[in-house]
Design a protein around this nucleic acid. Sequence first.
DNA 1: TGCTATAGGATCATGTATGATCCTAAGTTT
DNA 2: AAACTTAGGATCATACATGATCCTATAGCA
Lengths: 125, 125
Amino acid sequence: MTESKKKYRIGVEAALDVISGKWKSIVFYHLATEKKRTNELKNLIPQITQKMLTKQLRELERDGIINRIIYKQIPPKVEYELTEYGRSLKTALNYFCEWGETHLDKVYGDKNSVLDNFLDNEKHC
Amino acid sequence: MTESKKKYRIGVEAALDVISGKWKSIVFYHLATEKKRTNELKNLIPQITQKMLTKQLRELERDGIINRIIYKQIPPKVEYELTEYGRSLKTALNYFCEWGETHLDKVYGDKNSVLDNFLDNEKHC
DNA sequence: TGCTATAGGATCATGTATGATCCTAAGTTT
DNA sequence: AAACTTAGGATCATACATGATCCTATAGCA
């Protein structure tokens, strides 16, 4: 996704370029419900470093998935939200999420033994 | 996907572990139509090295996505086919593929300028 | 005997993604 | 004036994914 005119063989490759990686799907997930400030995201994903978070957000922005909303104030305030285009990814990701949970059930007997319970009160998919 | 009891936050992460990587989706795609011998796959994906192909196939097999069929003969003959479970990924991947093609259209104006035409005669999704 | 065909193992090299740590700007509050 | 707050840049280190190249087993056939 970085080089100009990278070659793809099937659409899946292009989609994976946009959403794969260690953090992107999680960031997407959190933004899917509503827009969030940088620090909110950081708190929702404690293990991510500042640098990685920024990098993922930049790439998602470059790919048109999220908007970056800058408030002119000190201390700085920045919010991120899904774009309309980003929301169009939801359906596909939802199928992926369902399949993934089924897969975890299959591999571990019970998906809840490996799914962090940080989202207990929300739906995962 | 390699460690035992890796932690996930959402199902998407588990699904991505199974199908992301530089070659997996392509291998899956080729097996989605019908089973293939190792060398057939190698020829369909000329850029992949023998080592990488074998590695992807082993991982897909470990994750229950494909079957490895060994014919007891010399020279060796091995075929790979999607399992029933592997076929259950098709729907989700199809959505991903459609979205990916749309994305390429959006980014490059025309997806066909970046999609290798090695599949001209077949559907991409 | 020596060659071919097929699947894949072994070794070493490189590239890309991720991570840890420290630094900055500039208003506001004390 | 000093400390606080927030977003994120800069640097250096490491881990993991991918790649290039060479080697092997074995039966059949020329």
